[in-house]
């Protein structure tokens, strides 16, 4: 048991050090990532100015800015750049062999290196994030949420990370069958961009569409945490949302495990 924990700890430490190599590039990249939001904010400012009461379905200008900034945080937890394509690449190039002979769990290894990646990311991006949020503090009209709501917010962020990880891992593991998953990933990215709430607050959608996004797990990756923070989802609905998110997590953990188990049985590695 102790030896096992020590192994995982070593993996985590190595991954963290690996990530810290490119810290300058990282910090700059984080600041640049706010740029697309700037245009989005100007767009909504212009749109809201044409509407009589200056708000769309409860989003006034301040809420809109706050919403976009909060989705940046949601995405900082839930986005997994290169995870699915990396898994598919390892399957295709045969690198995955090494996990089949070593006593290390492939998915567990990926999860740890991803946690390391995220930890380093938060460490370095905390500065730029704090700077931008400080500049924009005036847009958060309602200030900080209640402590218990804030707790739910943090929970929804962490669950967003886990959901994002297992969802993408599942997609990547389809690579055992398809080998090339880039077109599948493009479709996923497309849906993710529009239906996770990254592009606009999902509650602006009219009927059949709003039902659709409610049925998909994507909204937990960006929209849900942000709307918890802003108090758009409260009380029973908030608790229900967290339970549904948990159900999705369980679903994708099982799916990823199942695909890996079936995939390894199907896989044949050649060469050394």
């Amino acid at each position: 048991m102790y030896a096992r924990a020590a192994t995982w700890w070593t993996i985590l430490r190595i991954s963290i050090e690996e990530r810290l190599v490119y810290r300058g590039d990282f910090a700059l990249g984080t600041l640049m990532r706010f740029l697309p939001i700037v245009t989005q904010i100007f767009l909504w400012q212009a749109i809201l100015a044409t509407i009589a009461d200056g708000d769309v379905k409860g989003y006034a200008h301040g809420d809109m800015v706050a919403y976009y900034l909060l989705t940046m945080i949601s995405r900082a937890f839930s986005s997994m750049p290169g995870l699915a394509s990396g898994i598919a690449l390892q399957v295709r190039e045969g690198e995955i062999k090494k996990f089949l002979v070593q006593p290390i769990d492939f998915i567990g290894f990926l999860l740890l290196s991803r946690i390391a990646h995220k930890l380093v990311y938060y460490l370095i991006s905390a500065g730029p994030f704090a700077f931008v949020f400080f500049l924009c503090r005036g847009f958060f009209i309602n200030g900080w949420p209640e402590p218990e709501v804030f707790l739910c917010y943090v929970l929804s962020l962490i669950m967003g990370f886990v959901l994002g990880f297992f969802l993408e891992a599942t997609l990547g593991l389809i690579g055992f069958w398809w080998l090339e998953v880039s077109s599948l990933l493009f479709v996923y990215m497309l849906f993710n961009f529009f239906l996770s709430g990254h592009m606009f607050p999902l509650d602006l959608l009219p009927e059949p569409w709003s039902l659709l996004v409610d049925l998909l797990p994507l909204k937990y990756l960006a929209y849900f945490p942000a709307s918890v923070f802003l108090g758009k989802v409260e009380g029973v609905e908030l608790i229900r949302g967290l339970w549904i998110e948990l159900a999705w997590i369980v679903f994708f953990i099982v799916a990823a495990r199942f695909l890996f188990w079936r995939g390894v049985r199907r896989y044949s590695g050649f060469g050394g």
Binding site: A49, T50, L190, F194, L204, P206
Partner: peptide, 29 residues
């Protein structure tokens, strides 16, 4: 596949603007 995926990107984008114009009648007074 490339044609279809770039087209679907366009359709989604168009959907976003249709959504905007369902709430407002122009961009900026």
């Amino acid at each position: 596949i490339q044609c279809i995926s770039s087209l679907s990107w366009t359709v989604m984008n168009l959907g976003f603007y249709l959504l905007i114009f369902s709430h407002a009648d122009q961009i900026g007074p």
